[in-house]
Design a binder for these strands. Structure first.
Lengths: 166, 166
DNA sequence: TTGGAAAGTCAACAAGGCTGACGTAGTTTG
DNA sequence: CAAACTACGTCAGCCTTGTTGACTTTCCAA
């Protein structure tokens, strides 16, 4: 089954079998992807939702709540709960907008930044190991397929973030 | 920051910036990955948990409850709730084990198989489009990085499934 | 100046994780 | 054979994180 019973088109990688393997790989890999931050957060009253908020606030300091809303793809009520605990615990600062007072500009405090570093260092550690084991060629392919898998809106978001720094 | 401040080792793909992009790509891509099945399931009383159960029962017909438990990585109470509704609704059949009567061998009914097809066709559709857009080389890399990202236990699980059919 | 849109908050609910405790049937082992 | 262990199911209760609906404050444009 691993041989070239190919119709001559070189499309062997598009069989349902191959696609299923890709689907299962995504499933198991995503578990690994979130495992380390989850472990750190567990028991400290925070969860994956807090991690995501912290990540993107760090990523775009001064961003507004509704920006964050679009990035995370949740309702504002859901995000608000997470944000409130982060503000109460002094990890995030929500400053009233200068130009538009309806907006809140979000920043990590020093304490928030410290947690962000801890989380992202753990996650990058795993990523780095995987990248190193797979090699640059594979990494290129990895990113290409992931991008192609996103919804157009998500892809635009991702592209915008990518350009941000880099 | 995008230029060749490389130490000469060709490890540019391991910078924190590159790793961050990989992390965000995983985040957005996973949303796309689950979007289509979620859409189908929504409003029909089922969720992602049901999808996962159905997928792996289809994948390994006759599997036992505790096998499924290890694959999915949830508690039996959690799985049981899902499984019960699937059995009640006639999508899954739980036959008492022939050799060991304590076990329940799980199978999809015709109705369950129909839903499985609908779900997995949607998910494969997206996967196929992504694979086709990215090309075989990229797909190879994609799978390599994902495997490297799994926890050893998850990787063993995945390997075993992969060999199953292939 | 007023009406609508945008930003954010509060309340209540649902899905789907979790732990702990327990029951029952079937299997294995001393 | 009795005791211990295993597989499965279930009850109760908790937590996180998603949802909708109703509300206030602020801003802007007609």
């Amino acid at each position: 089954m691993a041989e070239t019973s190919n119709g001559g088109e070189g499309l062997l990688f598009l069989t349902d079998e191959q696609l299923r393997k890709g689907i299962e790989a995504m499933f198991f890999a995503y578990r690994g992807f979130t495992a380390d931050p989850d472990r750190i957060l567990e028991g400290m009253d925070y969860g994956r939702a807090h991690h995501r908020a912290i990540h993107f606030i760090h990523r775009s300091p001064g961003t507004t709540v509704s920006n964050l809303l679009t990035t995370l793809g949740v309702t504002k009520q859901s995000l608000n709960r997470v944000l409130r605990t982060l503000v109460e615990d002094g990890l995030v600062e929500a400053r009233v907008g200068r130009a538009d007072k309806r907006e809140r500009n979000l920043h990590l405090t020093e304490k928030g930044a410290a947690l962000e570093r801890e989380l992202s260092e753990a996650q990058r550690g795993r990523m780095r190991a995987a990248y190193r084991a797979a090699g640059p060629q594979a990494v290129q392919g990895f990113r290409t397929v992931l991008e192609a898998m996103m919804d157009p809106d998500q892809r635009r978001q991702y592209q915008r973030l990518k350009e941000g720094k880099s």
